[in-house]
Write a protein that binds this DNA or RNA. Structure first.
Lengths: 224, 224
DNA sequence: CGAAGCTCTCACGGCTTCTTCACAGATTTC
DNA sequence: GAAATCTGTGAAGAAGCCGTGAGAGCTTCG
């Protein structure tokens, strides 16, 4: 199972996260500040880092920068309320997600799981960037769709939906799950939006339009 | 073996439950009120919680809400007779079962076993998505039914019923229970509706139609 | 600044599915 | 063997679901 590095100067917070992490079957290691964290990262292989921003010696941002120089490890940042304005800056540094303190450990664990899943997914995609079914093909590197060799223009959402369906081919996927996984946990819109995108997407797939099958009462599925 | 948390303000009741739990080879821990229960849950990993509703400091419902925020642990509620009207509210909170006081410890233990089994069941289903019996097969990922290799179209309810019966094969399942588990706690319809669905379902199963056996006076059963 | 493109929402209409009901046949009970 | 209870079945209305087109709010681009 995955191994996490927990970085925070407050022992109490590390303890809470550690407990939850163990409950979710993750291994853990800990560091008290950015400096220690960088050191530990150089000498160990972690799958994910949970790190506070405000810390003595070396703050979370700087530590993140140092670590990313050497290794590509996903990082989830903990920030006190009010530090949110730094969000954009943080994402430029390659931070994968943010959790604002005081946080719910359960939510944090959900984010951890999501980031790890995303990472594993992209690792697989990097190995083989093309997904195909008959003459329908997508390339996750160039984010392009081709139908019988002919390139088809899709919008971002259409591409994301098609990629998601093909990555989970032959699985009935509920609208809720699709919203969660494609739009993100913080989207609170109408799930019928998906239907509209599906309609447009089908329109672009020509003779393969029926590969996207409606699963009545549930959602959709890509049939190989 | 599984570990239970017993929450009740009366020491006598905790004692009775504890004894029966130990007899059934469960580990136990105890709390006297909701507040304590929440605290203990945060610091320990329990497999199931048995909790009274009426308690000083923090009542069972509120405690349940707090706990479910952080961890997904099955909860069985103990309620005094007359508190039953709260059932709906309780199921919304994610309560897995109810036992009315004064209860039979033996029945309580049966419920505990059932809830734990159900939980394990869903964990297993995630691992192996196909259920089969001779040439009749369902795939819970793609939500498809095949008869001797030929795909058969089912409606949502037909599929749900078949999946439910096959997941509980060789068990006589009452109509009430089926309504509870398939339709949900908030369905207040006629249980003969099931009969109609069973009829339609049998029509689709061809030579395997008799695998769904009528249990007169009770309901139905899937015979392997 | 206007045009074009994208995303999301909404509501209509057609179609499928669900539910109810009544009756006939089967089974059990007395 | 008659009465009571239960299930199978077909029909029909009610309810629900999805495809679709239109359009509003935004952003991007020229």
């Amino acid at each position: 199972m995955a191994k996490l590095l927990i970085v925070d100067d407050e022992a109490k917070i590390r303890e809470v996260i550690r407990e939850y992490a163990h409950f979710n079957k993750y291994e853990t290691d800990e560091a008290e500040d950015g400096m220690q964290a960088v050191g530990k990262c150089l000498n160990n292989d972690y799958d994910l880092i949970i790190m506070d921003i405000m810390m003595p010696r070396l703050d979370g941002y700087s530590a993140c920068k140092e670590i990313k120089k050497e290794k590509d490890i996903p990082i989830i940042m903990l920030s006190a309320r009010g530090e949110e304005y730094d969000k954009l800056f943080g994402f430029e540094l390659g931070i994968d997600d943010y959790v604002v303190k005081p946080f719910s450990p359960k939510e944090l664990m959900a984010r951890v799981a999501a980031v790890l899943a995303r990472k594993q997914h992209s690792a697989e995609a990097a190995r083989n960037p093309v997904l195909a079914s008959d003459g329908l093909e997508i390339n996750t590197d160039s984010r392009t769709v081709t139908v019988d060799g002919v390139k088809v223009d899709c919008t971002l959402k259409e591409y994301e939906i098609l990629a998601y369906l093909m990555q989970n081919k032959n699985m009935a996927l509920s609208r809720d799950r699709m919203l969660q996984d494609i739009w993100g946990y913080d989207f609170f819109g109408d799930d019928r939006t998906i239907d509209t995108h599906i309609k447009n997407l089908r329109g672009r797939l020509g003779k393969y339009r029926d590969k996207i099958v409606t699963v009545r009462g549930i959602g959709y599925k890509f049939e190989d």
